[in-house]
Design a binder for these strands. Structure first.
Lengths: 364, 364
DNA sequence: TTGAAAGCGCTAACAC
DNA sequence: GTGTTAGCGCTTTCAA
């Protein structure tokens, strides 16, 4: 590899001059700069970013940690963040925690050791980036999509509480009185918000919480499928389901199909986010959609702020509203037919670890 | 930040000893090591990976460049690669080229400058990583999912040629004689392979190629939707469509609904890959599926080989077979002049899997 | 077994 | 304007 020293030798100038010429320092004669640049080019010189980073103590890189590389919830934002960051001369490196605490901590640490200038973090536990604080207290962290219990970091999340309440309002407006919620692990801020909003919507409509079961399961379509099965078995009176995770929606649909429950005639379904297919299948899926791009932009702005002004500033917590997209998977309930059909056709699915709780029981 | 020097000072030994102790060098007295480690821990010492990398000229990192962060084709593999690599002590950093040549080159360069030890590359042009070769001739590159025209790099791709031929065979077997293919830009190896296989399947069935239109469009559901519209207008005789991209499948479905064409009664559809929703909607989508996880593993193996043995070796080109998943979106075509009674029994095929090929082959 | 010293490639402070 | 020098934090000879 050609080094700066080589370039200096060939162009007959000192090391400092080469560095200045290449970095656009104004105090270097134009012709000198031209010569240096020409030589560098001709020699195929490429800066060693590691050395630069070590010297300047900035790698001009920010790290993004997501729980799932295949989930649009995080990756749609990632796409935007990368572009916005690139505009400010920063590069994004992405790691995946698989929703596992120890992996999360691991990657957090490892990115910090790689001297990223900031971290965009989708926490997978309430403790969030706490482990980092001990070793890298000054590394800026911005939380994305989810919040940990830390209140000293910036964050950008969607307004899922209002979203869930809106979903309930929509369903209640159609006449539903027995609504189920299927969401993720209760330790996550997103699930918490969804449950809070769900209950709020129910209370506003004067619907008893105990009529409306909540299932908290892993974010896989399989888990959602099993949860739906179990839930419908236990609560055959349910006429509408809010599948509050994008992957979960597919699982719910599958379970419904196994039970021969027609959507929306026998069961209304509201999905989460708005993947392409929601609008391409029959029935088109009603959903609660978050402006993922906008959330990415907001995160990038926060990041760049922290990057530029190393001055401490009070943490900013941004909550971005979503919208309800009413399509064809929700309709007024058909009381008699629905429950009958549900009992008529038993499921053949194997049941796995699925926690089901009634909304009323845990509400305090 | 605590440095190694600090640790040395506090534990009362030299720099070298600390380095050796921390890196498990055998020639250091156990008690010395214990003390050093204790001090390091107590001081919250964290190695500066940048400095390590600079010194050892290895960052123990490999870079992955994909065209689209939201596409399971690439990200499912990424997930696996990351885990496999982690087992060998390597970290994966991911960048996104957006399918744009200049961004691709940009990221390639930037990762190289960051001194990754190898690059896993999903090329978006035939030139692939050529631009890198000039400046970093020795950086190992493994191509993933797609191939460039370079024949001096390792690669792992799915056998899409055989896959496309199998799809045609399946459709022809059902009685289709006018089949359309919607695929990506023709400059990509994947599109080429799909088209080749498509034609081969047609020829084997003695179906005139001119009866079977091919559309090459961007990898968005929108582009596929428009292409389908246009294609059906121009070729109303078409009775089956192979949507050879996962996003494209949704677009095709949308266009079909828009035209009020029932699937599979009036139009058979074969999708690409196998996202959750293919099996969750009505009709469940017949598709050509690639073992993404297996492909990721293969790539990781190749990578680790290159990483360990810096010895040059002839490039290996691995092709991994996929399988056809026959579900409900394909059925015999509706005879042109016949009435509805002509199709007495709708095809309710249970999902069966067909291996397209016995084993992956490696050459070179 | 350990310490001292020499850089890895670069930038920034300081001279001229 | 430009050259020289001193490190950034680490690993790795080379002596001891």
């Amino acid at each position: 590899m050609t080094t700066i020293r080589e370039v200096a030798r060939v162009s007959g100038v000192g090391l400092g001059t080469v560095s200045r010429a290449l970095n656009g320092d104004p105090r270097v004669r134009p012709e000198t700069r031209a010569r240096v640049i020409a030589v560098a080019e001709q020699l195929g010189y490429r800066p060693n970013v590691l050395a630069q980073a070590m010297r300047t103590k900035s790698s001009r890189t920010v790290g993004l940690i997501v729980p799932d590389l295949q989930n649009e919830f995080f990756m749609a934002g990632a796409e935007v963040v990368q572009h916005r960051l690139a505009e400010s001369g920063y590069r994004l490196i992405i790691g995946c925690s698989d929703n596992q605490d120890h992996l999360d901590r691991n990657i957090l640490q490892s990115m910090a050791e790689r001297r990223v200038d900031a971290i965009l973090h989708v926490p997978c536990t309430p403790s969030g980036s706490t482990s980092l604080r001990e070793t890298f207290p000054d590394l800026p962290v911005v939380e994305f999509c989810r919040r940990s219990s830390r209140d000293d970091v910036d964050s950008v999340i969607g307004d899922e509480e209002v979203g869930a309440a809106d979903v309930v309002t929509h369903l209640v407006g159609l006449g539903h009185k027995h609504i189920a919620l299927i969401t993720g692990p209760t330790t996550l801020s997103t699930s918490e918000a969804r449950i809070r909003g769900f209950r709020r919507g129910l209370q506003a409509a004067k619907i008893p919480l105990r009529h409306c079961p909540i299932a908290s399961v892993e974010f896989t379509s399989h888990a959602a499928e099993n949860a739906t099965e179990e839930l419908l078995q236990r609560h055959p009176e349910v006429t509408a389901i809010f599948a509050a995770s994008s992957r979960g929606t597919a699982g719910v649909m599958r379970a419904l199909h196994h039970r021969r429950l027609a959507v929306p005639e026998q069961m209304s379904v509201v999905g989460f986010l708005d993947p392409d297919w929601f609008d391409s299948v029959q029935p088109r899926v009603t959903c609660f959609k978050l402006p993922l791009g906008q959330m990415g932009t907001a995160a990038a702005v926060l990041l760049v702020e922290r990057l530029n002004h190393a001055v401490p500033r009070r943490p900013r917590r941004i909550v971005i509203p979503g919208e309800l997209l009413v399509r064809d998977s929700t309709a007024p309930p058909k009381p008699a037919a629905a429950t009958k059909s549900a009992r008529a056709r038993p499921a053949k699915t194997t049941t796995k670890t699925t926690k089901t709780q009634a909304a009323g029981r845990a509400s305090g």
